[in-house]
Amino acid sequence: MSNVKATVGRFEPRRTTRYTIGQVFRTIFLLATCVGIAALLVLLLDVLNEGATHLSWDFIRSYPSRFADRAGIWAALIGSIWVLSLTALFSFPLGIATAIWLEEYAPNSWLTRTIQMNIANLAAVPSIVYGILGLAVFVRWLEMGRSVLAGSLTLTLLILPVMIIAGQEAIRAVPTSIRLGSYALGATRWQTVRRQVLPMAMPGILTGTILALSRAVGETAPLIIIGALAFVPFVPDGPLDSFTVLPIQIFNWISRPQPEFHAIAAAGILVLLAVLLTFNLIAVLLRNRYSKKL
């Protein structure tokens, strides 16, 4: 027992203090989490309170109107679905292909590193800048006009960096041992990527896609710049038609002085949230299907 005494002499455990410090930090982390959740709850309740009564089948199926009680969200809802679908269609293959090239094929040169760094920089560029780019390149130069196509391509550029980075991280997370195992069996690089790396990276890639598309569906500024209209009494028939999207419609209603329009704006936000949740649900289901296969 003598060495126990010696230990007590040389160490000063201060266990109570250490536990207290631990508790303090635990509380800080809990509070930080509560702030986020509370803000979200307040927002949701406020919107529900204001908008829920206006949410009806008529509201969803009607076109915008000068009269708040006749105005609906149909054009913006279909416009958003159009834009989101085309954006997904363009950005998903482009994003994955770029991520694969950067991770699996690119030599480790200064050029690759420069590209890599610039992709990270692009992800931080404000969305309105992409709007200006889209206006100059797609609307004017390529003469697409204020079309669904121009809007989707602009949003594709906007979310591409995020998708590439997410894709790269998912691909990087695949253990090297899996690649070596594949090569050792006589697989080519493409066979290794296609049969081993991509299936393992797919859940992560899809998670990145969810986040990126969620961002795209909420974007307003770049679409205003490229000239998405606020008053569209029709739904787009094809990618070259003009269009509006939910956030623009909501913004338009909010900025009017009449309180009735503010109420239907709230209802519009509910529709936007529903669209977001639906898209996320699809992506989560896809991801789970892939994860289960492993």
Partner: peptide
């Protein structure tokens, strides 16, 4: 000339698919 590694590195697939992978790609 086949190779076996230090740490077992089966593919995250079924037992059958692990063995069938090499023959398939070749």
């Amino acid at each position: 000339i086949g190779m076996v590694f230090q740490k077992p590195n089966p593919f995250p697939k079924s037992i059958y698919e692990n063995v069938a992978f090499g023959p398939r790609i070749n």
